[in-house]
Design a protein around this nucleic acid. Structure first.
Lengths: 249, 249
DNA sequence: CGCACACTTGAACCCCCTCAACCCAAGTGG
DNA sequence: CCACTTGGGTTGAGGGGGTTCAAGTGTGCG
């Protein structure tokens, strides 16, 4: 909830010219589009920056001076209405590129929901690099297209799915993401609070909690800890998530 | 509702090499990124194709062989759930580029809601052109970013806005779009049915109808014809659309 | 004229929200 | 060690916004 720099823990250090070549998350991000020999140029445009949990490092409506690449932790991307209603449009994990926009101002806000590490690029420098590295532009286009597809899927969820289906879709999505990283059974972690899940799914905290409790009571999931969930019935979950609600008990 | 080619009116004619240079909607589309001298190459990759109202010319899940550029009319882009629930993710008007996706299959469907004219590009040809014309790629990236911003705005609408605010946002959005084209007062046209508006806003036909009736009774709008709306109180409309609901009567 | 289709309007219902109490774990300080 | 606080989560009871079901109203077109 902290805004601006006053009470936020922000560590800035300029990166030596070869930092990018040692970056262990480069292959997961758009930076992988840059050849090894050009990495020093990339590194010269990047600044490492850390944000404490709760820090809002992108604010809707503010001038879009920088782009960010997440190297650690998770951030929530959201928009708010004047009276405080909030819609989370996505969670950005490691490798996620933030700030894609033509506009001069950010169209959304971003807040660290756990300690977050980023590479910050000045908008101006990155835009000039775009012209020099067509592969980077291609990569960004791919990224944008993928996000667009995800956004359309989320619109379907928000506009037409029931609370059950929304929560099931959320869990199923998390499961798919984590399995991509490492195949470690059907256990997922939820770094975000119930309030954030609710704001992501267009529901209230209570409905999210009740729905999870119902899933648990029905033996579809188990909740060993607050932020851990074990999917006991992945097939049922994906069926519900896909909208085959009436077909199953 | 017609699917495939059987009972749909589809006229295909190959374009002569200079058709693009005579295209009167080129400046409104991504094609404007191609220089005049390269237009013949663009034309050779394009096929003009017309679709009757109701024809589904892109089907979710089918192989994405082609891209389309709308030259006339309006199409609705939508996703559906197994039981028929439908979410319209957007309306594509003249100049809109369809098919932006990395995937091998379409992630959404497209249906002409009025007679539609398109330029169809083979996916393969366009992808090779991308490499040759960086400006085209840049233009596509811009387009994708703009759509992403619009998608996030729509997520806010679907997840957090009331029915009043949704309908107000829809009308306000239409007003803004048409004013960009021609400043002709505060009159807008609605080429789509109430059902399509409902599927776009995540509501039912009845709620859309009732809300419009309420706006009319309150003197905020007038409805001279079925598909025509006159905005009598644009300021009030934009305030409601922005979520300042309680501040106004 | 009469059918089809889109839209409107009314009444009853229900899913989810609101409000409220309570639980639980992790501090924190005496 | 315990009392107290705080933040996140759960659970219950009641209410409301939007849906569902149903009937009625144009309106274009054969």
């Amino acid at each position: 909830m902290t805004v601006g720099s006053p009470n936020a823990i922000v560590i800035i250090k300029t990166r030596p010219a070869d930092t990018c070549s040692h970056c262990d998350v480069r292959h997961r991000s758009v930076c992988s589009a840059i050849d090894a020999e050009d990495l020093s140029r990339l590194a010269s445009a990047a600044v490492q920056q850390q944000f404490a949990k709760g820090h809002v490092f992108i604010e809707e409506g503010q001038p879009a001076h920088d782009f960010f690449n997440i190297t650690r932790g998770t951030a929530k991307l959201f928009k708010t209405l004047p009276d405080g209603r909030q819609q989370i449009t996505g969670f950005a994990g490691v490798g996620h590129f933030l700030g894609l926009a033509v506009s001069e101002t950010y169209s959304f806000s971003a807040e660290a929901i756990e300690p977050v590490g980023t590479c910050r690029f000045s908008r101006a420098k990155l835009l000039t690099m775009l012209g020099d590295f067509p592969a980077l532009e291609k990569r960004l286009l791919e990224t944008a297209c993928n996000e667009l597809v995800a956004a359309q899927e989320q619109m379907l969820l928000l506009g037409r799915k029931t609370a059950r289906e929304r929560v099931a879709s959320f869990l199923a999505g998390r499961l798919q993401e984590t399995e991509h990283g490492e195949t470690k059974g059907d256990s997922i972690s939820l770094p975000m609070t119930r309030a954030e899940i609710a704001d992501y799914l267009g529901l209230t905290i209570e409905t999210v909690s009740r729905t999870l409790s119902k899933f648990k009571a029905d033996g579809r999931i188990a909740t060993p800890s607050r932020d851990g969930v074990i999917i006991l019935d992945p097939h049922w979950l994906s069926e519900v998530a896909a909208g085959h609600e009436s077909a199953l008990a």
